[in-house]
Amino acid sequence: MNCDCLIVDDEIELAKATCEYFEMFGVSCAYVTNANDCMSFTENNSVKLILLDINLGADSGFVLCKALREKTDVPILFISARQSDDDVLIALNIGGDDYIKKPYSLSVILAKVKVILKRYEGKSIVDKSNDTNSSSLNDNICGELRIEVDAMKVYISGKDAGLKTKEFKLFYYLYSNKNKVITKDELFAQIWGDTFFSDGTLNVHIRKIREKVEENPNNPRYIKTVWGTGYIFELLEH
């Protein structure tokens, strides 16, 4: 079965209503109510996007997200009635792509899902056709920093930095536009395929990249913040 969206929520009526609403507008959808059924469904079916609740009865959406991230990089959008900033940060830190607070508007969440699906449909992990700044698919960025696009890896002094897929996409997009200020909206559109995401989503991913590639993440050499605007991958010509 090919499924655009899988809803993982133990509120059966809400999950069912959301699923039926999506189907009305051409988004194929299924729902499960617990972690075991989610893992089984994703193992036996193709899923493009997951809406994941945090509270799943005896299960935790946080634990489930970590398990999913071991095997898939499909967008995971947390949906939860929990409102605290700590919950949002945990969700983003463990691999969630966004956090949507309940109660949500069906029309708004559908718009968000359709934009993400449109962006991901038929797209490769990295759109190499838009890369006009790098001279090859495997670049020595500088002495100790090297990028291999086909393998989606960044190496620091010969050691794999361990970037996850979305982290690599973000790193590579900034590098492809090196020495140019890239706005947050552009990054949301190009990397997440959506401009609805919160700044927290982007900030967490940038921080995790810096922790993996920068010698001093608090004083980055490469990925620098342009306050109020976005980020720049600064690479001085030698």
Rank of each mutant, 00 (worst) to 15 (best):
D139T: 12
Y99N: 07
G96K: 06
D160I: 11
K166V: 08
I125C: 04
A151N: 08
G158Q: 01
K153T: 02
L92G: 05
S84M: 05
F171V: 00
D127W: 05
R82F: 10
V181T: 14
I156L: 14
N179Q: 06
K159P: 04
L187F: 09
L145S: 10
E148S: 14
K180L: 12
N93P: 07
Y175K: 03
E186S: 12
K180I: 14
E148V: 11
D97R: 07
D86H: 11
L174R: 02
K184W: 05
D97A: 09
V88T: 10
D127P: 01
L110V: 02
V149D: 08
K178P: 01
N93Q: 12
V115S: 15
G162N: 05
I116H: 04
T132K: 15
K180A: 13
S136I: 06
A111R: 13
V149G: 00
S136T: 06
K118I: 09
N130T: 12
S176P: 04
E167S: 04
G122V: 00
I94H: 02
L163G: 00
G162T: 04
Y99T: 06
V149W: 04
K169Q: 15
V88K: 15
G158N: 01
K184Q: 11
L187I: 15
K166T: 13
K166S: 08
S136V: 01
S157K: 13
N177P: 01
L106R: 14
E167I: 03
T183K: 10
N177W: 09
I182F: 06
V113P: 03
D86R: 09
E148I: 10
A151C: 01
L92I: 00
N179G: 02
G143F: 07
I125P: 06
I90R: 13
K112Y: 08
G95A: 05
Y104G: 03
A161G: 04
K159G: 03
L117C: 02
L187C: 02
K159Q: 11
Y155F: 15
L110G: 01
S176W: 00
L163K: 02
Q83P: 00
V113C: 10
V126L: 03
I125Q: 04
D160T: 11
S107F: 00
V154G: 03
D86C: 07
R82V: 12
L110M: 10
K184E: 13
F171W: 08
A151D: 13
N138Q: 11
D97F: 08
I182V: 15
Y104I: 03
S136A: 13
D86L: 12
L106V: 09
L174K: 03
K153Y: 02
A161K: 04
T165Y: 10
L110C: 06
L137D: 14
V154A: 09
K169I: 08
D87L: 00
D139V: 15
T165S: 13
S107D: 03
D131V: 11
N177V: 04
I100E: 05
K184V: 14
L117A: 03
F188P: 05
T183P: 00
D85A: 12
S176A: 10
I116F: 06
Y172M: 07
D131Q: 02
I90S: 03
E148T: 07
N133L: 14
F171Q: 04
R119Y: 15
Q83I: 12
M152S: 11
A151F: 10
E186L: 14
G96R: 01
D127M: 08
L145N: 01
A91Y: 02
